[in-house]
Design a protein around this nucleic acid. Structure first.
Ligand SMILES: [Mn+2]
Ligand SMILES: [Mn+2]
Ligand SMILES: [Mn+2]
Ligand SMILES: [Mn+2]
Lengths: 218, 218
DNA sequence: TTAAAAATTTAGACAAGTCTAAAAATATAT
DNA sequence: ATATATTTTTAGACTTGTCTAAATTTTTAA
């Protein structure tokens, strides 16, 4: 039985592996978890002993098959609970992430599967992220980051990478939601900011914002 | 912000105060929590410093107003989650207690109230226990323990005090559920066992079982 | 009222997870 | 290739909650 802390480390390594292709460094994990490299180092030793990660000192880590399975289960729980909160309890999409951070550590396989059925086996969470099924199968959504698009290209907002309250409220303020059509109008090479056309007019978004917007193009 | 452990101590003291009228002893708490008196002693000092309990060394404890409020909030969460699990996710009444023990520590006032509304503000949980409202008001159900009844008296099973899987499965096996009519047929003075008539015949229950059955008589 | 028994608290240790500071290993740059 | 900078690990300390064993207080009972 893993502690919530151990589960969070596995989940973080899982997320970082999707971000970059190489082994995950101690510092990278520390920055994501807002903790210190020394704490991470201690934990990596522990997770390595439990065969949940492949770990050689100073070489970075990756999840073992066993660790990957557990990470997927936690991701599944997190996203299913987010669905529940938004669809059944009428939370807004910007209010659910922190609560799901807690709910994802509730231990009961039966609970997850019953929740999944209750919700009608959703495939995506309120932020457009795919939900692994009970066997750990996950569809990677083929979306493109808006930074990779050219002037004149357009698509529908399909997924936001940052689920924090502060980012989602920014999108709310700009009247941007999943499914909205977005067209790239202008690209500023100096700071990579982008002028986009949305349903409620044209706005400029910073590179930092753009990094978190994924569109489905045709 | 309290830890799950601190919350469990408060909840336990709350429950014990309903059981007995005097201040709650260290050993009594230890036995309920399956821990040692020395651990309890440490925790009581801490909860006392936080003004959550009234504590004088060697004198036993009771909840302060502040502690009582928190205990009621946890009880409310526990019982609402049990309702959710049974009514929405189709768990059986004997499967939910342990899961609710985890869910009750999820922190979000908004979540509790939205869950309450979603469920239609239920007044009782699947074991017949009353659910405090958002202000901490709780209706004490006026039920009578079957040990206090005479031969020939009858009533409807309204509440079970033990919510453990093992006890509720025993009741399932005897085909006994909340709402069922029960009549006292015979009382054995030697061991306080009771012969009762239920919808599916007449059975003998031990004193230990009887202690956990509360009926509503007319 | 005093001695024995029981209950409670304290002392000291341990595990988990975190931190700072220092040491060791790796990467970078001249 | 070597010195410097960066990253990672280790050492030692701290916190929370637990335990056993010992000391203290309260209760019970002679
Ligand atoms: Mn989330
Ligand atoms: Mn999400
Ligand atoms: Mn319960
Ligand atoms: Mn209950």
């Amino acid at each position: 039985m893993l502690s919530p802390t151990e589960e969070n480390y596995l989940k973080t390594i899982y997320a970082l592996q999707l971000e970059v292709d190489k082994d995950i460094s101690t510092n990278f994990i520390a920055s994501k978890l807002h903790t210190k490299a020394s704490s991470v180092s201690d934990m990596l030793k522990k997770l390595g002993n439990k065969k949940l990660i492949i770990y050689k000192k100073y070489q970075g880590v990756k999840l073992s098959d066993k660790g990957n399975k557990i990470a997927l289960k936690i991701v599944r729980k997190h996203r299913l609970w987010e669905c529940f909160l938004v669809k059944e309890l009428n939370f807004k999409w910007d209010e659910v992430h922190e609560i799901a951070e807690q709910l994802e550590h509730v231990k009961s396989d039966d609970l997850v599967d019953k929740l999944d059925n209750f919700l009608g086996r959703p495939k995506f969470d309120p932020h457009g992220d795919p939900i692994p099924d009970k066997y750990g199968n996950i569809v990677e959504n083929n979306t493109v980051n808006i930074l990779g698009m050219q002037i004149g290209e357009e698509g529908k907002l399909d997924c936001v990478k940052d689920s924090s309250e502060v980012f989602l409220r920014y999108l709310n303020n700009k009247n941007l939601a999943l499914g909205d059509n977005i067209k790239v109008v202008e690209i500023e090479p100096f700071d990579n900011s982008i002028r986009i056309k949305t349903k409620s007019g044209s706005i400029t978004i910073s590179k930092h914002v753009a990094e978190n917007l994924y569109l489905k193009t045709n």
